[in-house]
Amino acid sequence: MMEQIPVEQSLLLAALLFGIGLVGVLIRKNMILMMMSVEIMLNAAGMAFIIAGSRWAQPDGQVMFIFILTMAAAEVAVGLALILKLFHLQKSIDADEMTQMNDITEASESN
């Protein structure tokens, strides 16, 4: 049975997942969950690559997916290590509490 690839639907699915991931990044305060939302977005992007690759029956999409995967793995390894370190320092992983690196000082308020 020769089936057609639902290109547009799958692309829309990827876009929708991406959007949901974005919402996740923006509304979660827990840094681990923010990172998870980032993974959702990365996955959605990889999915879009694969859809394109399948559309043209080329391996490039999957190659790109593999690169994204590699990147995600490295990012998670370092990111989680950072979060662990941060938790040891701050006893919290609430992103809203980590605003020490802002640039709003008393001096700048006055001018």
Binding site: Q4, G53, S54, A57, Q58
Partner: peptide
């Protein structure tokens, strides 16, 4: 315009 293609396994 996305021309649909038949499924081919990579």
């Amino acid at each position: 315009p996305v021309a649909t293609a038949s499924l081919s396994i990579v």
